[in-house]
Design a protein around this nucleic acid. Structure first.
Lengths: 214, 214
DNA sequence: ATCGCTTTTGACCACTTGGTCAAACCGGAG
DNA sequence: CTCCGGTTTGACCAAGTGGTCAAAAGCGAT
């Protein structure tokens, strides 16, 4: 059987040398750069290869196809994206837990804008790749955490509102600063928008959740 | 001089017949459909032509190039997009004016999701086409309206916060329901998300601006 | 019917792009 | 050195793409 290229760490294949793993990392990073800026169809293997510092056939030696690169990239993405929400602790203080989530999400927009844009791109296009997993993993997690938030509200610890839409709001407000970066900077004149954004979101969610101090 | 194809209503050309105008409309609508779903590079002239019910060379008879179609589409878009903000009346009641803007913007997400996605796509890609106009028209308008809002805040008619980020928030929260539609529906299970969204945004902005009734 | 105009189309082209392949390269073990 | 595995590449291909062009088809007015 002609195994075309190394799979992540497949069945009976050597688990891949350190160098292989590193090259694949490099490729993935280059792919992230290009895919997030140009979209799936806009990205070309040539550009990704160039960005990674190798030739197109060489890239195809490490990944069997453009699709494959994209899918591996996408694979890790959703997990990374949902981790902060997963970290929200039902036993913690409601206000701190939610605010910590907001802050963490805003940090991600600042520190990983490419990932955010890649994700946005995928969703805007109708989630052709990670569509199925949205209806399972994502849906489950959101409803689970929404239930937690609802309990907090029923216990009177934060002001009531629709907890699912609250989560949407957090996503929308934080990711906006990564995905619509150029627009934000066009208005704000190229200063770093994040300090102001943090301050604003602090205020917004404090009031939404029922501020006790202001 | 060999004029290639009819321009909008150019210099010494006939102002274009009703039929011509209509065909161009059809093409523009087809282009909106395809561009918003696939992005600029993902869209093909063949698909747009097919969607519009004509052949590729025939499409090229009405528009000189793919770029030209895209640009005309983009041209009208920003104006349409900013109109509701323009409509915010400095002499009106602060709370009603802002809430009306929010509602209008949410309606647009519901009724013109393709336009919203096209816009999102353009911005995410770094606004290669309408970049310049962001730094002029958009920036000016936003700061103008931000000033109005700031006055309202200083007059104590609504609770204070950063007015520019407030506008960003309105954009983010409303457009989210168009641009991330699949994600929203994946979580909400394909019911119409808009009634819930409206209710939620009503609550959110009421509290942010200083609710007097709840 | 025929002229003159706009509209429509089939055939075609140049270029890009994802992907293949056989040959060359390289670095360590014998 | 030589062999041998993994690695790298130049040349190539088929399909898809944006765009051209000359010829044909409509069609209203004479």
């Amino acid at each position: 059987m002609s195994e075309k290229a190394a799979q992540p760490e497949t069945v009976e294949n050597r688990p891949m040398t350190r160098i292989q793993r590193k090259k694949r990392e490099t490729i993935l990073d280059a792919a992230l750069e290009v895919f997030s800026a140009e979209g799936f169809r806009g990205a070309t293997l040539d550009r990704i290869a160039a960005e990674a510092g190798l030739s197109k056939p060489n890239l195809l030696y490490y990944y069997p196809s453009k699709e494959a690169v994209f899918q591996e990239l996408m694979g890790g993405l959703l997990a990374t994206w949902l981790d902060p929400l997963k970290a929200m602790d039902p036993k913690g203080d409601p206000r701190s837990e939610i605010m910590a989530y907001v802050r963490r999400k805003l940090e991600m927009s600042r520190d990983f804008p490419r990932e955010s844009r890649l994700f946005a791109n995928e969703i805007v296009r109708g989630a052709p790749t990670l569509g199925p997993v949205l209806e399972t993993d994502l849906k489950t997690l959101v409803h689970e955490k929404a239930a937690v938030i609802r309990d907090w509200m029923h216990a009177g610890r934060i002001a009531p509102c629709d907890p699912v839409h609250l989560i949407f709001s957090i996503w929308a407000l934080t990711q906006h600063y990564a995905d619509f970066d150029v627009q934000v900077r066009a208005v704000l004149g190229h200063d770093d928008p994040f300090p102001g954004a943090e301050q604003h979101l602090e205020t917004l969610f404090a009031r939404l959740l029922g501020d006790t101090t202001a």
